[in-house]
Simulated scan of single mutants.
Amino acid sequence: MSQRSKNHHYVPQVLQRRFAVSKQEIWHSRRGEDGLFEAPKLRLIDKTFKLRNYYTVEVDGVSSDVVERRFYGPIDDYLGKVLPEVFESFDRGVVPTFSGRALTSLQRVVLEMTKRTPDFVAAYVDETKGREFVEELLADTSGELLDEDRVVLQKELGNAARLREYGRQIRVTATVRESDDVHEALVPFQARWVMSRGTHSYILTSRMAMRIGNGGHNGLANPDAEIWMPVSPKVCLVLVRDAGRKIPLRVDDSTANIRQFNEYAASVSREIASHSPELLESLTGKKRIEPSLVRETS
């Protein structure tokens, strides 16, 4: 347990590399305490889109990285295998297609990408959730709570760190819990590819995969709902209902739509990144900090 992973990436490094300047660096901006994006900086990808102990849970009373290793690890491995195959197909002039079990796997991975980020359930709610949990236990009058346990819980109401641990356990457990209803709702969705053929590029954000309602709510029950997940500056995977097979496997996106998507993605995300500092400057309204002046390593 002493060797457990403590720094957890919610945007996999394998995906970051598709948007990076090099294998190790990416232009990046995050929101400050004022809610505004900071000036873009060139950062190491192993230092971006991560939080300490974000997926840590307790197993038999001991802090464990089991969720990071056994749940998100296989998802990251999947992306590390599938993304190169996707781009190899495009390089050969073949549009990648998914069906059967391959499509089901893709659907479920994209779904998990929508949930794994702090933009889905913010980490700062952990203490609040933990406090609610402890208060509910203390409010139980059934007599099942032992007096000595009640004393411990009363003390823990004043222990912010312990409340965060309780809340984190609740958040992580709820996030990774599978739902048959949700999986069933994903069945009609097909994989399509939206491409940028011009100079405009998609950004990478901490939200990664975004549900878009097209005028309605963004829940999967909305027949017009789509899930957009950029997988490179020029390629965006879209899950969409297309029972009549009317939507081409590949669609060229317009400059205006890419800009609209980027603006929306930035507006609902706490962090954004790109290979292009100019793109981040245009979205943040801040001039980049040149690497010669500041090199961010943490």
Rank of each mutant, 00 (worst) to 15 (best):
K6T: 11
H8Q: 05
Q13V: 08
V14Y: 01
V14N: 04
R18C: 06
F19E: 00
S22E: 07
E25K: 11
W27M: 08
R31Y: 01
G32R: 00
L36T: 08
L36W: 06
P40E: 05
P40F: 06
L42H: 07
L42G: 03
R43G: 12
L44Q: 12
I45N: 14
K47Q: 12
Y55F: 12
E58D: 13
S63F: 05
S63Y: 05
S63C: 03
R69N: 10
R69S: 11
F71T: 15
G73A: 04
E88F: 04
V94F: 09
V95D: 07
L106R: 09
L106V: 09
R108I: 11
V110F: 05
V110N: 06
T114W: 11
T117F: 04
V121Q: 11
A122T: 14
V125M: 09
D126R: 13
D126T: 13
T128E: 10
G130L: 07
R131W: 01
E132F: 09
E135K: 12
Q154W: 02
L157F: 02
G158C: 07
G158K: 10
N159G: 06
R164E: 14
Q169I: 06
I170S: 04
R171W: 02
A174L: 10
T175N: 10
S179R: 10
H183A: 08
H183C: 12
E184M: 10
E184T: 15
A185V: 01
V187F: 12
V187D: 15
V194E: 02
R197P: 03
G198H: 08
G198V: 04
H200P: 00
S201K: 09
I203F: 03
T205E: 09
S206K: 03
A209W: 02
N214Y: 07
N218E: 14
G219A: 03
G219R: 09
L220R: 06
I227W: 03
V235C: 06
L239G: 13
R241C: 02
D242F: 02
A243V: 10
G244I: 03
G244Y: 02
I247T: 15
L249S: 13
V251A: 08
D253L: 04
D253R: 08
D253A: 12
S254D: 11
A256L: 11
A256T: 14
I258G: 06
Q260T: 15
N262Y: 01
N262T: 03
N262K: 04
S267G: 13
V268F: 09
S269E: 10
S269G: 13
S274K: 01
S274M: 00
P277W: 02
E278K: 12
E281T: 12
L283G: 08
T284N: 06
K286G: 07
K287P: 05
E290F: 12
P291D: 12
P291I: 07
S292H: 09
